[in-house]
Design a protein around this nucleic acid. Sequence first.
DNA 1: ACATAAAAATGAACAACGTTCACATATTTC
DNA 2: GAAATATGTGAACGTTGTTCATTTTTATGT
Lengths: 201, 201
Amino acid sequence: MTAKRFARREDLRSRLIEAAQSRIQSSGLAGLRARDVTADAGCALGAIYTAFADLDELILHVNSITLARLGAALQHQAAGAAAPRARLMALAKAYLGFARDNRMAWTALFEHRMAPGVPVPDWHLAEHAVLIQHLVEPLAMLLPALGAAELLARARTLFSAVHGIVTISLEDRFIGLAPSDLESELLNFVDTLVAGIESTG
Amino acid sequence: MTAKRFARREDLRSRLIEAAQSRIQSSGLAGLRARDVTADAGCALGAIYTAFADLDELILHVNSITLARLGAALQHQAAGAAAPRARLMALAKAYLGFARDNRMAWTALFEHRMAPGVPVPDWHLAEHAVLIQHLVEPLAMLLPALGAAELLARARTLFSAVHGIVTISLEDRFIGLAPSDLESELLNFVDTLVAGIESTG
DNA sequence: ACATAAAAATGAACAACGTTCACATATTTC
DNA sequence: GAAATATGTGAACGTTGTTCATTTTTATGT
């Protein structure tokens, strides 16, 4: 049976992913070392390259799990609100909450860069796209005249705007707002933007 | 005279900064090597550490110059528009234009991270803060009831939102919009937000 | 069941990086 | 001009990610 080989390989992969996830959570993406991860996973240094092409691919899998958790958090929060404005605000709040509660993992999601010339694989791009889909539905209610392509563009823009507000506020580069101010500032932003959409169409 | 010593030191510093700037422009921050920079600057590898504490400090000085150029570009563009809505849209357009025309240098501005535990020096934080000041004045016209602290918070939020839209659109992680779509999408965003501010106060 | 082939795990070795340091050179001071 | 001080040099160091000959494990054929 070749199943045993498959099981062992899969076991090694998941041990490496878990070890990497843990290291990222505690030390950040920049603190991730191949030697630490393999030691934590209980395998040799070279074993990484039997399970993954390189460290980047391993990181991609950690990010994949983080995206799934983020997606679940958004889904869970959005379920409570039916009206588009309330739903968009709930999504923004959930996004901020996830970023706060999973700082390092969330940062790794956007900090990570592939080697020059190597594109992000399609399966991972697709996982990012799912996030934006959460915004399409409420936006469609606010902008019933728009087609699917335009709606998608607006959803990506709104996502990027919220993402930017959360990102810069959580960075050291700018003097950050107090945590409570950040949340009210973010919610005020979404509220104002929705008001603008309603007033202009 | 101790002036000759000072002049030599300053000459080395500026040669290193220029070499680093050039390397970042062509290869990005991740492609910056101490050996390349010193070779370009015509000095020994170790000379970096007589002029700067480490590579991070050198990068900070490159970013400082980039920030000055970005500030000048914003100033220049904003001068044309008097009305707050038009000025905010001009600023957003100028920001996008600068990011496009100086891709690598602009990316380095936000990609760079200090070593763990080392804070970004105050003089560099102040340079970032200047960018946000450009937004305070037009926002004050739209929101005359707000105090200085609240106004600053709104300015930072708006800056972050615009920054996020530009950043994510220029990244490989998400399927990017066509360049022309990005600009119209960004301008529509600012327009809508201003409409929201005007409608809600 | 055993021998043989194929695959995977190992960890020492490699190359590339930022940084340091004993030494050489240049500059200032007396 | 000589002693003292500061600055520039590049070989060497420690730490990376990655590779590769070797060993160990797993699968296959009779």
